[in-house]
Design a protein around this nucleic acid. Structure first.
Lengths: 147, 147
DNA sequence: TTGAAAATATTGAATATTCAAGAATTGAAG
DNA sequence: CTTCAATTCTTGAATATTCAATATTTTCAA
């Protein structure tokens, strides 16, 4: 069994570092694909979450897309300017703002999904089907056990 | 075998998303521990890499600690102010700047290592020894296959 | 019912990061 | 040699993120 990192272990033996490194690499690849549509990764996440057609509050959305509230607010401002999404005040709780994807946002989202799917296909090609699904399973389980 | 994500799959089925989510969670935990010493995660990485006592050029260091060059330059400026590290011009190639950890930096690094080790121990407790080492193995292999 | 506390989203100032350009040095071809 | 391209690091301006404070609405206990 792998030993845990000790005082003198290189940083590459720390789980936190390996996660950061892998995330950086994969995120860069995705970023570079999505740049074809001029859209940052976070905006793809937002459009994807909103693509279920239901309204999502800013709080829900911030959790789902891994951004904190003020950052999300400002990104949504930009997306509203680009007519990709729109705000509606929640009639049941007027503190909340419900976000929806516009038709334009939905069309863009489909193209972004294709780019993201093709990235994942590319990873599976190099890295293997079995490793990919095993890694996903372990990541899900790590996330569960950490929250 | 797990199916790859399709147009309508939730974002949680994408490897890129799972990596981002896991990284965010684990990084936050580490950040919260290291804040006890008032040090951001990136500074721990820098001190750890420099703790071998060898000089590392800014370029090397930027790769190793997952920061791009200008960001690293500015972080190093702060750490020089705090007397944690110092710059030496490389005598063999005067374009390069070699970075070294000061004694103060080395002492701080030991305390930070302990905090990081205790975090990893905590993860292993909840998540399991076997899962942790398997996850590390898969991450290393993903990084290899992606670079 | 009222008033204080909690929840939700946004704003503005402070901070940090990134992009593009610059300065210094080296390498290498003519 | 000499000059021109490549490498390395830093800087300054533009951009983005974060922290703390604010405004609004809801909840709930007295």
């Amino acid at each position: 069994m792998a030993k845990p990192p000790s005082q003198n272990s290189p940083i590459t033996e720390h789980l936190a570092y390996l996660l950061a490194q892998a995330n950086r690499e994969i995120n860069r690849q995705l970023e570079s694909r999505l740049s074809q549509e001029g859209v940052p990764v976070e905006q793809w996440r937002i459009l994807k979450v909103l693509s279920d057609g239901n309204g999502h509050s800013m709080g829900e959305l911030a959790d789902a897309v891994l951004l904190n509230h003020p950052t999300l607010t400002k990104m949504i401002d930009r997306m509203v300017s680009d007519a990709l999404v729109y705000r509606v005040q929640d009639p049941d709780d007027r503190r909340k703002v419900l976000m929806f994807s516009s038709d334009r946002g939905k069309i863009l989202c489909k193209r972004l999904n294709s780019l993201a799917m093709s990235q994942e296909a590319h990873i599976v090609e190099n890295y293997g089907d079995k490793s990919t699904s095993e890694l996903k399973r372990l990541l899900e389980s790590l996330i569960d056990s950490s929250s």
